[in-house]
Each structure stands twice: as structure tokens, then as C-alpha cells.
């Protein structure tokens, strides 16, 4: 698994490529925690276009950082999730907790809403 982290204006786009299993979830954890640590207000878009599978440990990463991100008045939005991954997220009820969108641009819009609402 590979992780690409890019910044676009005030958004950080994290793009995991491949499968996030119990072992590679450590890399994902590092990537997310770096952003949470280094940004005053982390606005994170998780680009799931090349995320083929995510284990419970990988989901655990998002759950762990969701609260710290929101405490810093930032947010996390999922974009471009594959069908299988999106199914897993919705079964868990994550879709009720986090915004899941179909594209990065929509994700940015949603995050801008969050920004304005503060």
C-alpha cells in the first residue's frame, strides 16, 4: 500500500493506493496523524479512488482521529469511495458520522461549508 498526501489550498488530500490491512494501517495512521499534528485546522479529504480494501484496523484510524480533527475545528470528508469500501462504511454507520461524497470538488464544497459555519 502507498499513501500520497497532497495539499490543495487549505485542503489536505490523503490518497491511499491499494489495500489497507492490519499492517499497512500503521502507515495510514502516520499519514493522518501528521496532518492532524501539523495543521492548525486540518481539512482532510480522503480520496478513495484507489483504495481497494480497508480492514477494521484501517477504519479504526479514521475513528481515532475524527475527534481530534473536529476539536481543532477541522473536518474529514471521504471522496470517490469504491463501491465495496462505501458498503463497508455504510454498514458500520460511518456515513452517518462523516460526509461521504462522490468527487473531490464536492468534498471541497462541503469542507468550505464547515469553514463558513465556524
Amino acid at each position: 500500500m502507498n499513501i500520497k498526501t497532497t495539499t490543495e489550498s487549505s485542503f489536505v488530500i490523503i490518497k491511499p493506493i491499494g489495500e489497507v490491512d492490519a499492517y499497512s494501517s500503521i502507515d495510514l495512521d502516520n499519514a493522518v496523524s501528521d496532518v492532524v499534528k501539523n495543521y492548525e485546522r486540518p481539512y482532510i479529504i480522503l480520496d478513495g479512488s484507489e483504495l481497494t480494501y480497508i480492514s477494521s484496523a484501517g477504519i479504526g484510524v479514521f475513528i481515532t482521529y475524527l475527534e481530534p480533527i473536529r476539536k481543532k475545528k477541522g473536518d474529514l470528508v471521504f471522496a470517490n469511495l469504491r463501491k465495496e469500501v462505501q458498503y463497508i462504511f455504510s454498514v458500520l454507520g460511518l456515513d452517518k458520522l462523516v460526509i461521504i461524497t462522490d468527487s473531490i470538488s464536492v468534498a471541497k464544497e462541503k469542507l468550505n461549508h464547515v469553514k463558513e459555519s465556524i
Binding site: I63, L92, G93, L94
Partner: peptide, 28 residues
């Protein structure tokens, strides 16, 4: 609560469907 959706087979219609309704997993 976040668990896999149970599969229900209705003998009358002879069809099986997943019961999707549900909420968040525990601990979120």
C-alpha cells in the same frame, strides 16, 4: 449497530434480501 446486514429469505416470495436498516457501530 454497524454489524453485517442479516439475510432474510421469505418463503412466500421465495426471495432473499438483506435487512439494511441499522445504526452506528459501538465505540464510534
Amino acid at each position: 449497530a454497524g454489524h453485517t446486514t442479516p439475510l432474510y429469505y421469505n418463503a412466500n416470495t421465495q426471495q432473499a434480501r438483506y435487512l439494511h436498516e441499522g445504526g452506528l457501530a459501538i465505540g464510534l
